[in-house]
Amino acid sequence: MSRTSSPASRPERGTPLLAVRDLRTVFHTPRGAVRAVDGVDLDLAAGETLGIVGESGSGKSVLGRTVMGLVTSGPTTTITGSVTLDGSDVHALSSRARRQLWGPRIAMVFQDPMTSLNPVKHVGTHLTEPLRLHLGLGRRAAAERAVELLTQVGIPEPARRAGQYPHELSGGMRQRVVIAMALACDPDLLIADEPTTALDVTVQKQILDLLGDLTGRLGMAMVLISHDLGAIAGRTDRVGVMYGGRVVESTATTALFAAPRHPYAEALLASIPQLTDPPHTVLRAIEGSPPDLVAPPQGCRFRPRCPYADQQCHEEDPVLVDLGQPGVPHRAACHHPLPVPARVDA
């Protein structure tokens, strides 16, 4: 019945954990082929945190789900490239072997806590299921561990909460439960897909801090997906900026904030609400609309919205190149990368 898998020791901090190579996820729809992820490379070491930032529809969720192996090739979906987690190719595994990764190796926190818990199941059951399945815990042991997990994510009166239904908890509390659920089997990699978008502003910071704190303390690697650069500032080691299914800039988070090289990243930075803004300032959204993933613009995908576009941008699709200093990689896909300011205050 229950497989007893010893919670394998975590790969040593800094060893390569995740390698994504030329990953493409194409959905075949009546409208045509939607290239939701279009040639993405990622590397993540154990214990490292990576932010993925991009506006709505840029393919962040599809990327996260493809990395996890929740989206797989099928009649309407084609996936090419590779996702290697801890040495095994996620998309080459049998579905059974893949399910064994989910929980103990890789786990996900979803966007909307209102819908990611089963309304007819007790809070505690959401936690005991993976514990019993992957760790082979008995009923009692699983129930005790569930209460510990709820305590760990900062839920008051955890024993009482475990016996309640999801609708009896607030949004913030529910997202804590979802996080506890993802942490249950102590994964090496946590993918948090916009974990705070659906929450009140006041709760957002608490949840992000909780995630940063827990992954740091447990030495867990994390991919933190957000449409808001502000959310990943100070919480991630590195960042990848996504546009139209591609990573258009990738570097250390501090380096991006100090000097973005891609015009889209610059625009994203400018759209972060500042604490100094008067209340109720209208967000400075980037003008224009995201590219159509069925028929992206010719040349550079950002061209229709880019203030620096010229003829070359129209003709040639820019590729990611390293513009950084030796030892400090800073990749951007742009024909006319922004200059680094004379004085970099890093």
């Binding site: 996890m68 929740l70 399910r99 064994q100 990764l101 989910w102 929980g103 103990p104 786990a107 996900m108 979803f110 966007q111 909307d112 819908t115 990611s116 818990l117 089963n118 309304p119 299921e129 993976p130 399945l133 992957h134 979802v178 659920m181 993802a182 249950a184």
Partner: peptide
């Protein structure tokens, strides 16, 4: 629904 995806992501059959 999302909670089905979440259940899958826990590795349930």
């Amino acid at each position: 629904e999302d909670f089905i995806l979440a259940a899958r992501a826990k590795g349930m059959h």
